[in-house]
């Protein structure tokens, strides 16, 4: 059975306060409602303080944002009410059994054991989660914060390095980082593959199509 009882302690954003997990369970969507209401507030404040150029015709630049702010406020409240009254079905209720044998293709099984090991270090038990239903409906699945964090980190490093270091190396690093995060462990092969991939793109788009990619520290060579 799924053991999705506590929120992972290493969560980078406050997904749920640990004190009352029973109430918050299935209601983490309140975060979205908070975001929507926050956006509504942001639009409202910005609209109210917006400097309007003199001589603007009556339905001016504030008119539409005001409508959107009201709309967002209404939708945010409606979502809050809906989530509080009808919390989402949790993974535990949705998936009565672990994935059955016919679905457990070998490489998938491999991966889930890997994921189980890695998150085991963190002290959280690995939930079986819910499977994609035949209709394409998805029940909430526990988020793998470690993998997600790695991918986001790879993207952040790529953006920071792109201009100083150049496309070739930073894109290779991005490729390697995402591949590693997704569970690839053939380090040496991956390094070579990443470099080949980013060089191919550099060749095809800069030399072939004339796009402008930052060359960075390798600028002298190319």
């Amino acid at each position: 059975m799924s053991t999705d009882t506590t929120s992972p302690a290493r969560a980078p954003e406050p997904s749920a306060p640990p004190s009352r997990p029973s109430w918050w369970r299935g209601r983490t969507e309140l975060l979205v409602a908070a975001l929507v209401l926050g956006l509504a507030g942001f639009i409202a404040v910005q609209t109210a303080t917006m400097p309007v150029p003199p001589g603007t015709e009556p339905p001016g630049p504030r008119f539409f944002p005001t409508l959107v702010a009201i709309f967002m406020g209404g939708v945010g409240i409606a979502l809050t009410v809906q989530v509080v009254l009808r919390p989402a079905r949790t993974a535990a209720e949705e998936a009565p059994a672990a994935p059955v044998a016919e679905d457990g293709a070998t490489n998938e099984a491999d991966e889930s054991t890997k994921a189980g090991e890695t998150s085991g270090d963190g002290g959280a038990a690995e939930g079986t989660g819910a499977r994609t239903a035949e209709t394409g409906e998805e029940a909430p699945v526990r988020i793998d914060w470690r993998r997600l964090g790695l991918v986001v980190a790879a993207l952040v490093v790529f953006i920071l390095l792109l201009q100083p270091v150049g496309w070739l190396l930073s894109a290779a690093l991005l490729f390697f980082g995402v591949a590693y995060a997704m569970g690839s462990r053939r380090i040496l092969f991956d390094i070579v593959l990443s470099l080949v991939f980013s060089s191919l793109i550099q060749l095809a788009f800069v030399a072939g199509l004339g796009l402008n990619l930052p060359s960075g520290i390798l600028g002298g060579i190319f």
Binding site: E108, E111, T128, T132, R142, D144, R147
Partner: peptide, 15 residues
């Protein structure tokens, strides 16, 4: 990409 990274441990697929 982020979605797959965050949830692939629970995904099902044919081989």
């Amino acid at each position: 990409v982020l979605h797959v990274a965050a949830t692939s441990h629970a995904s099902k697929g044919e081989d």
